[in-house]
Amino acid sequence: MGYLELRGLRKSFGGQPALAGLDLSLAEGELVSLLGPSGCGKTTALRIVAGFETADAGSVSVGGRDVTGVPANKRDMGMVFQAYSLFPNMTAAQNIAFGLRLRRSGNRARRTSELLDLVGLGHLAGRYPHQMSGGQQQRVALARALAIEPRVLLLDEPLSALDAKVRVALRDEIRRIQTSLGMTTLFVTHDQEEALAVSDRVGVMSQGRLEQLDTPAVVYRNPASAFVAQFVGVTNTVHGVAEDGGVRVGAVRVEAEHEVDAGSDVKVIVRPEDIGIAQHSGQANGALVGSVVTQSFLGAVTRVSVRLAGDGQEVRVDQPSSRAGDFPVGTAVALDLSRVMVVEA
Protein backbone atom coordinates (compact mmCIF):
# COMPACT_ATOMS: atom_id res chain seq x y z
CA MET A 1 0.00 0.00 0.00
CA GLY A 2 1.66 3.17 -1.20
CA TYR A 3 1.37 6.67 0.18
CA LEU A 4 -0.01 8.13 -3.04
CA GLU A 5 -2.12 5.55 -4.79
CA LEU A 6 -3.72 5.85 -8.25
CA ARG A 7 -6.03 3.00 -9.09
CA GLY A 8 -7.60 2.25 -12.47
CA LEU A 9 -7.69 5.87 -13.63
CA ARG A 10 -9.58 6.40 -16.85
CA LYS A 11 -10.28 9.63 -18.63
CA SER A 12 -11.25 10.53 -22.15
CA PHE A 13 -11.63 13.91 -23.82
CA GLY A 14 -14.29 14.09 -26.50
CA GLY A 15 -14.15 10.33 -27.07
CA GLN A 16 -10.34 10.30 -27.23
CA PRO A 17 -8.97 8.20 -24.36
CA ALA A 18 -6.22 10.04 -22.47
CA LEU A 19 -5.89 7.53 -19.64
CA ALA A 20 -6.75 3.88 -20.16
CA GLY A 21 -6.62 2.41 -16.70
CA LEU A 22 -3.58 3.84 -14.95
CA ASP A 23 -2.33 2.21 -11.74
CA LEU A 24 0.51 3.85 -9.87
CA SER A 25 1.74 3.68 -6.32
CA LEU A 26 4.28 6.01 -4.68
CA ALA A 27 5.97 5.21 -1.39
CA GLU A 28 6.25 8.05 1.13
CA GLY A 29 9.18 10.32 0.29
CA GLU A 30 9.64 8.83 -3.15
CA LEU A 31 10.10 10.80 -6.37
CA VAL A 32 8.45 9.10 -9.33
CA SER A 33 8.58 10.57 -12.84
CA LEU A 34 5.96 10.02 -15.46
CA LEU A 35 7.74 10.12 -18.79
CA GLY A 36 6.21 9.93 -22.22
CA PRO A 37 5.57 11.70 -25.50
CA SER A 38 2.96 14.47 -25.61
CA GLY A 39 -0.56 13.08 -25.52
CA CYS A 40 0.42 9.97 -23.56
CA GLY A 41 -1.74 10.98 -20.60
CA LYS A 42 0.96 11.92 -18.10
CA THR A 43 -0.28 15.47 -17.59
CA THR A 44 -3.88 14.28 -17.36
CA ALA A 45 -2.86 11.85 -14.60
CA LEU A 46 -1.15 14.66 -12.68
CA ARG A 47 -4.12 17.00 -13.09
CA ILE A 48 -6.45 14.31 -11.77
CA VAL A 49 -4.21 13.89 -8.73
CA ALA A 50 -4.25 17.68 -8.24
CA GLY A 51 -8.04 17.75 -8.54
CA PHE A 52 -8.15 19.93 -11.68
CA GLU A 53 -9.72 17.16 -13.74
CA THR A 54 -12.22 14.52 -12.73
CA ALA A 55 -11.47 10.94 -13.70
CA ASP A 56 -14.15 9.00 -15.58
CA ALA A 57 -13.29 5.99 -13.43
CA GLY A 58 -10.74 5.01 -10.81
CA SER A 59 -9.58 6.51 -7.56
CA VAL A 60 -6.79 8.56 -5.99
CA SER A 61 -5.82 8.16 -2.36
CA VAL A 62 -3.20 9.87 -0.21
CA GLY A 63 -1.97 8.28 3.00
CA GLY A 64 -4.84 5.82 2.95
CA ARG A 65 -7.53 8.52 2.56
CA ASP A 66 -9.58 8.53 -0.65
CA VAL A 67 -9.42 12.02 -2.17
CA THR A 68 -11.11 11.23 -5.50
CA GLY A 69 -14.05 13.57 -4.88
CA VAL A 70 -12.22 16.20 -2.83
CA PRO A 71 -12.00 19.66 -4.51
CA ALA A 72 -8.55 20.90 -5.49
CA ASN A 73 -8.36 23.51 -2.72
CA LYS A 74 -8.86 20.91 0.02
CA ARG A 75 -6.31 18.35 -1.21
CA ASP A 76 -3.09 19.77 0.25
CA MET A 77 -1.13 19.20 -2.93
CA GLY A 78 1.67 21.56 -3.81
CA MET A 79 1.97 22.10 -7.52
CA VAL A 80 4.56 23.71 -9.76
CA PHE A 81 3.34 24.47 -13.27
CA GLN A 82 4.98 24.48 -16.66
CA ALA A 83 3.85 28.04 -17.36
CA TYR A 84 5.00 30.81 -15.04
CA SER A 85 2.29 30.82 -12.44
CA LEU A 86 3.37 33.40 -9.85
CA PHE A 87 0.69 35.96 -9.04
CA PRO A 88 1.91 39.04 -10.97
CA ASN A 89 0.52 41.49 -8.39
CA MET A 90 2.48 40.00 -5.50
CA THR A 91 6.17 39.99 -4.58
CA ALA A 92 8.11 36.75 -4.24
CA ALA A 93 7.52 36.80 -0.48
CA GLN A 94 3.80 37.55 -0.86
CA ASN A 95 3.47 34.72 -3.37
CA ILE A 96 5.03 32.29 -0.92
CA ALA A 97 2.92 33.60 1.94
CA PHE A 98 -0.32 33.29 -0.08
CA GLY A 99 -1.08 29.71 0.95
CA LEU A 100 -0.01 30.42 4.53
CA ARG A 101 -2.36 33.41 4.77
CA LEU A 102 -5.27 31.31 3.53
CA ARG A 103 -4.45 28.81 6.26
CA ARG A 104 -4.09 31.63 8.81
CA SER A 105 -0.89 30.00 9.98
CA GLY A 106 1.31 31.99 12.33
CA ASN A 107 5.00 32.83 11.83
CA ARG A 108 4.34 33.62 8.20
CA ALA A 109 7.28 36.00 7.86
CA ARG A 110 9.76 33.55 9.36
CA ARG A 111 8.47 30.63 7.31
CA THR A 112 8.52 32.70 4.11
CA SER A 113 12.12 33.73 4.59
CA GLU A 114 13.10 30.14 5.43
CA LEU A 115 11.58 28.98 2.15
CA LEU A 116 13.21 31.79 0.19
CA ASP A 117 16.55 30.70 1.66
CA LEU A 118 15.77 27.07 0.84
CA VAL A 119 15.50 27.92 -2.86
CA GLY A 120 18.46 30.31 -2.62
CA LEU A 121 16.54 33.53 -3.24
CA GLY A 122 16.63 35.18 0.19
CA HIS A 123 17.77 38.44 -1.40
CA LEU A 124 14.84 38.66 -3.83
CA ALA A 125 11.95 38.67 -1.34
CA GLY A 126 10.66 42.06 -2.53
CA ARG A 127 10.87 41.38 -6.26
CA TYR A 128 7.78 41.11 -8.42
CA PRO A 129 7.57 38.21 -10.88
CA HIS A 130 8.25 40.42 -13.90
CA GLN A 131 11.52 41.49 -12.27
CA MET A 132 12.80 37.90 -11.99
CA SER A 133 14.25 35.47 -14.53
CA GLY A 134 12.38 32.34 -15.52
CA GLY A 135 14.55 30.16 -13.30
CA GLN A 136 14.03 32.45 -10.32
CA GLN A 137 10.28 32.46 -10.89
CA GLN A 138 10.17 28.67 -10.92
CA ARG A 139 12.21 28.58 -7.70
CA VAL A 140 9.70 30.90 -6.05
CA ALA A 141 6.87 28.74 -7.43
CA LEU A 142 8.54 25.71 -5.85
CA ALA A 143 8.89 27.53 -2.51
CA ARG A 144 5.25 28.62 -2.70
CA ALA A 145 4.14 25.02 -3.30
CA LEU A 146 6.27 23.77 -0.41
CA ALA A 147 5.10 26.53 1.95
CA ILE A 148 1.77 24.84 2.66
CA GLU A 149 3.62 21.66 3.69
CA PRO A 150 1.76 19.66 1.09
CA ARG A 151 1.25 15.95 1.44
CA VAL A 152 2.32 15.45 -2.16
CA LEU A 153 4.36 17.67 -4.47
CA LEU A 154 3.25 17.71 -8.09
CA LEU A 155 5.62 18.97 -10.76
CA ASP A 156 4.14 19.55 -14.21
CA GLU A 157 7.14 19.97 -16.53
CA PRO A 158 8.42 22.84 -14.36
CA LEU A 159 11.71 23.09 -16.23
CA SER A 160 10.59 22.96 -19.83
CA ALA A 161 10.40 26.73 -20.31
CA LEU A 162 13.95 27.26 -19.04
CA ASP A 163 17.20 27.26 -20.95
CA ALA A 164 19.53 24.25 -20.77
CA LYS A 165 21.96 25.38 -18.06
CA VAL A 166 19.30 26.66 -15.68
CA ARG A 167 17.30 23.52 -16.32
CA VAL A 168 20.06 21.20 -15.15
CA ALA A 169 20.88 23.34 -12.10
CA LEU A 170 17.26 23.63 -11.00
CA ARG A 171 16.60 19.95 -11.62
CA ASP A 172 19.41 18.99 -9.26
CA GLU A 173 18.16 21.51 -6.74
CA ILE A 174 14.62 20.14 -6.87
CA ARG A 175 16.04 16.69 -6.19
CA ARG A 176 18.15 17.98 -3.28
CA ILE A 177 15.19 19.77 -1.67
CA GLN A 178 12.83 16.87 -2.29
CA THR A 179 15.25 14.42 -0.68
CA SER A 180 16.00 16.63 2.31
CA LEU A 181 12.28 17.18 3.02
CA GLY A 182 11.32 13.59 2.25
CA MET A 183 8.54 14.94 0.05
CA THR A 184 6.50 12.44 -1.92
CA THR A 185 6.71 13.81 -5.44
CA LEU A 186 5.12 13.08 -8.78
CA PHE A 187 7.12 14.62 -11.61
CA VAL A 188 5.74 14.81 -15.12
CA THR A 189 8.18 15.39 -17.98
CA HIS A 190 8.77 14.57 -21.61
CA ASP A 191 12.54 14.95 -21.16
CA GLN A 192 14.00 11.49 -20.56
CA GLU A 193 17.36 12.82 -19.38
CA GLU A 194 15.56 14.85 -16.71
CA ALA A 195 13.50 11.86 -15.59
CA LEU A 196 16.46 9.51 -15.40
CA ALA A 197 18.57 12.04 -13.49
CA VAL A 198 16.27 12.88 -10.60
CA SER A 199 13.86 9.98 -10.07
CA ASP A 200 13.71 7.09 -7.65
CA ARG A 201 11.54 5.37 -10.22
CA VAL A 202 10.54 6.29 -13.75
CA GLY A 203 7.18 5.38 -15.24
CA VAL A 204 7.22 5.39 -19.02
CA MET A 205 3.76 6.04 -20.42
CA SER A 206 2.27 5.47 -23.82
CA GLN A 207 -1.33 5.84 -24.93
CA GLY A 208 -2.74 6.25 -21.44
CA ARG A 209 -0.94 3.27 -19.93
CA LEU A 210 2.24 2.61 -18.00
CA GLU A 211 4.63 0.68 -20.24
CA GLN A 212 7.21 0.22 -17.51
CA LEU A 213 7.75 1.47 -13.97
CA ASP A 214 11.17 0.89 -12.50
CA THR A 215 14.42 2.50 -11.39
CA PRO A 216 16.13 4.67 -14.02
CA ALA A 217 18.93 2.12 -14.50
CA VAL A 218 16.54 -0.75 -15.14
CA VAL A 219 14.37 1.30 -17.48
CA TYR A 220 17.47 2.24 -19.45
CA ARG A 221 19.28 -1.09 -19.44
CA ASN A 222 16.34 -3.51 -19.49
CA PRO A 223 13.45 -1.77 -21.26
CA ALA A 224 10.23 -3.75 -21.01
CA SER A 225 9.16 -2.99 -24.54
CA ALA A 226 10.41 -1.66 -27.84
CA PHE A 227 8.55 1.59 -27.09
CA VAL A 228 10.44 2.10 -23.83
CA ALA A 229 13.76 1.24 -25.45
CA GLN A 230 13.20 3.72 -28.23
CA PHE A 231 11.77 6.50 -26.05
CA VAL A 232 14.41 6.33 -23.34
CA GLY A 233 17.90 6.97 -24.62
CA VAL A 234 19.18 6.66 -28.16
CA THR A 235 18.72 3.42 -30.09
CA ASN A 236 19.46 1.91 -33.47
CA THR A 237 16.79 -0.09 -35.22
CA VAL A 238 18.03 -2.63 -37.76
CA HIS A 239 15.73 -4.80 -39.85
CA GLY A 240 16.33 -8.52 -40.06
CA VAL A 241 14.77 -11.96 -40.16
CA ALA A 242 14.36 -14.14 -37.08
CA GLU A 243 16.16 -17.49 -36.83
CA ASP A 244 16.44 -19.95 -33.98
CA GLY A 245 18.62 -18.31 -31.33
CA GLY A 246 19.49 -15.36 -33.51
CA VAL A 247 18.64 -12.92 -36.24
CA ARG A 248 19.85 -12.69 -39.82
CA VAL A 249 20.78 -9.13 -40.78
CA GLY A 250 21.56 -9.08 -44.47
CA ALA A 251 23.91 -12.04 -44.94
CA VAL A 252 25.11 -12.05 -41.34
CA ARG A 253 23.81 -13.99 -38.36
CA VAL A 254 23.64 -12.08 -35.04
CA GLU A 255 23.27 -14.14 -31.88
CA ALA A 256 20.31 -12.96 -29.79
CA GLU A 257 17.71 -14.37 -27.47
CA HIS A 258 14.17 -13.78 -28.56
CA GLU A 259 10.70 -15.31 -28.68
CA VAL A 260 9.81 -14.50 -32.25
CA ASP A 261 8.93 -17.29 -34.69
CA ALA A 262 11.80 -18.19 -37.02
CA GLY A 263 11.34 -16.72 -40.48
CA SER A 264 9.36 -13.62 -39.50
CA ASP A 265 10.56 -10.08 -40.07
CA VAL A 266 12.01 -8.46 -36.96
CA LYS A 267 13.47 -5.21 -35.70
CA VAL A 268 16.76 -5.43 -33.84
CA ILE A 269 17.05 -2.63 -31.28
CA VAL A 270 20.48 -1.82 -29.92
CA ARG A 271 21.99 1.19 -28.16
CA PRO A 272 24.95 2.99 -29.78
CA GLU A 273 27.17 2.31 -26.75
CA ASP A 274 26.49 -1.44 -26.95
CA ILE A 275 28.10 -1.82 -30.34
CA GLY A 276 31.76 -2.75 -30.61
CA ILE A 277 33.65 -1.37 -33.59
CA ALA A 278 37.00 -2.40 -35.13
CA GLN A 279 38.86 -1.70 -38.34
CA HIS A 280 38.40 -4.46 -40.83
CA SER A 281 39.79 -5.52 -44.19
CA GLY A 282 39.24 -8.31 -46.59
CA GLN A 283 36.39 -10.82 -46.48
CA ALA A 284 33.47 -10.43 -44.08
CA ASN A 285 33.83 -13.97 -42.72
CA GLY A 286 30.45 -13.84 -41.07
CA ALA A 287 31.06 -10.48 -39.37
CA LEU A 288 28.75 -7.49 -39.68
CA VAL A 289 30.78 -5.13 -41.86
CA GLY A 290 30.30 -1.69 -43.34
CA SER A 291 31.98 1.65 -43.86
CA VAL A 292 31.97 4.86 -41.84
CA VAL A 293 29.70 7.53 -43.36
CA THR A 294 29.83 10.40 -40.88
CA GLN A 295 31.16 11.28 -37.46
CA SER A 296 29.48 13.65 -35.06
CA PHE A 297 31.39 14.96 -32.08
CA LEU A 298 29.24 15.06 -28.91
CA GLY A 299 31.91 15.94 -26.35
CA ALA A 300 33.03 12.91 -24.36
CA VAL A 301 31.81 10.55 -27.06
CA THR A 302 31.76 10.69 -30.81
CA ARG A 303 28.89 9.12 -32.69
CA VAL A 304 30.10 7.18 -35.73
CA SER A 305 27.54 6.34 -38.42
CA VAL A 306 28.26 3.13 -40.28
CA ARG A 307 26.52 2.02 -43.47
CA LEU A 308 26.24 -1.78 -43.49
CA ALA A 309 27.57 -3.61 -46.52
CA GLY A 310 24.86 -5.40 -48.45
CA ASP A 311 21.51 -3.82 -47.54
CA GLY A 312 22.84 -0.33 -46.75
CA GLN A 313 21.16 0.17 -43.35
CA GLU A 314 22.77 2.78 -41.13
CA VAL A 315 23.91 2.07 -37.58
CA ARG A 316 25.18 4.65 -35.07
CA VAL A 317 28.03 3.63 -32.80
CA ASP A 318 29.25 5.64 -29.80
CA GLN A 319 33.00 5.67 -29.23
CA PRO A 320 35.05 7.64 -26.71
CA SER A 321 36.14 10.74 -28.61
CA SER A 322 39.79 9.86 -27.93
CA ARG A 323 39.36 6.68 -30.03
CA ALA A 324 37.14 8.09 -32.77
CA GLY A 325 40.22 9.16 -34.79
CA ASP A 326 40.74 5.49 -35.66
CA PHE A 327 37.57 5.52 -37.75
CA PRO A 328 37.69 8.38 -40.22
CA VAL A 329 34.98 8.62 -42.84
CA GLY A 330 35.37 5.86 -45.41
CA THR A 331 37.05 3.34 -43.08
CA ALA A 332 35.92 -0.27 -43.47
CA VAL A 333 34.79 -1.56 -40.07
CA ALA A 334 33.33 -4.63 -38.43
CA LEU A 335 30.61 -4.28 -35.80
CA ASP A 336 29.81 -6.39 -32.77
CA LEU A 337 26.27 -6.02 -31.44
CA SER A 338 25.55 -6.85 -27.80
CA ARG A 339 22.49 -6.41 -25.52
CA VAL A 340 20.17 -6.44 -28.51
CA MET A 341 16.41 -6.51 -28.22
CA VAL A 342 14.45 -8.31 -30.91
CA VAL A 343 10.83 -7.43 -31.62
CA GLU A 344 8.48 -8.28 -34.43
CA ALA A 345 8.54 -5.72 -37.22
Binding site: N73, K74, M79, L86, F98, G99, A141, A145
Partner: peptide, 12 residues
Protein backbone atom coordinates in the same frame (compact mmCIF):
# COMPACT_ATOMS: atom_id res chain seq x y z
CA UNK B 1 -2.73 28.69 -14.53
CA UNK B 2 -3.15 31.47 -11.96
CA UNK B 3 -6.51 30.10 -10.86
CA UNK B 4 -5.17 26.56 -10.61
CA UNK B 5 -2.12 27.74 -8.67
CA UNK B 6 -4.38 29.54 -6.20
CA UNK B 7 -6.72 26.55 -5.97
CA UNK B 8 -3.88 24.16 -5.20
CA UNK B 9 -2.73 26.53 -2.45
CA UNK B 10 -6.13 26.21 -0.81
CA UNK B 11 -8.09 29.16 -2.25
CA UNK B 12 -11.86 28.92 -2.63
Amino acid sequence: TLAEAARSLGAS
